[in-house]
């Protein structure tokens, strides 16, 4: 029986969420807890992945600080991205040894979970060869960046629900000069709760969870 605990945490600072993930990853590695799916939202923050290029951060640190945007270098895969209010962040802490030992399949499954969730709201979305993430006709609606240690995952996805897209002008998202969009821009009026529900169902399908327990607790 595959079990997952979904923690819907509301707004959490980037550094705090990072520490939270670290703690849960350690406990997951020791087998003390089942798979975790953290759902949250960050205040304005620009993060740069391990393989990212600072050239893709268009604004100077002073400009970003003035605009109230934090900046973090972090250990997920991928290039630069922006997180902020109106985004649904999903951080799965999964032990892939209990699913498939395949990092590409993992990323593809996350994409599929998001595509399935969008389908529930009538938004046609797809993958694009060579550009990880979830794409619509009007641009990229969800970004993915993952870190794996001993087959336990951290970091994850950012789905734009009502994100103020003008914040993306500070960066070249993922080093790709392609447009970014949101569910709201695509004409979807769904509430955050409805989207989180659809995402949970998407993850359940793709990762074969028999049970997803939802809570709002940060720690056990």
């Amino acid at each position: 029986m595959r079990k997952c605990e979904l923690r819907d945490l509301g707004r959490v600072g980037y550094a705090e969420a990072f520490e939270l993930q670290r703690g849960l990853v350690d406990r997951r590695k020791r087998g003390e807890i089942p798979d975790q799916l953290l759902i949250l939202e960050h205040p304005h923050v620009v993060t740069l992945g391990r393989n990212g290029s600072l050239a893709n951060v268009l604004a100077s640190p002073e400009v970003m600080a003035r605009a109230g945007i934090e900046f973090h270098q972090t250990d997920r895969g991928g290039d630069v991205t922006y997180h902020g209010p109106g985004q649904v962040i999903g951080y799965p802490i999964f032990d892939l040894r209990e699913w498939k030992r395949d990092v590409v399949a993992y990323v593809r499954a996350i994409e599929q979970a998001i595509i399935g969730a969008l389908e529930e709201f009538g938004i046609p979305a797809r993958r694009e060869q060579g550009a990880t993430g979830v794409w619509t006709d009007r641009g990229k609606v969800a970004a993915i960046g993952v870190h794996i240690s001993r087959w336990v995952t951290s970091h994850g996805l950012a789905l734009n629900l009502t994100t103020d897209l003008s914040y993306f002008r500070y960066i070249v998202p993922c080093g790709l000069t392609k447009p970014v969009t949101s569910m709201r821009e695509l004409g979807c009026q769904a509430s955050r709760g409805e989207v989180v529900g659809a995402l949970a169902r998407g993850f359940g399908r793709e990762f074969g969870f028999d049970e997803i327990l939802t809570s709002t607790e940060k720690a056990l």
Binding site: N51, D75, V107, G145, H147
Partner: peptide, 16 residues
């Protein structure tokens, strides 16, 4: 013990 890190597509992985 973790020895090096690799990257494939959007995934960073630590290798023991």
């Amino acid at each position: 013990e973790l020895l090096f890190e690799i990257s494939t597509d959007k995934v960073d992985t630590e290798i023991p």
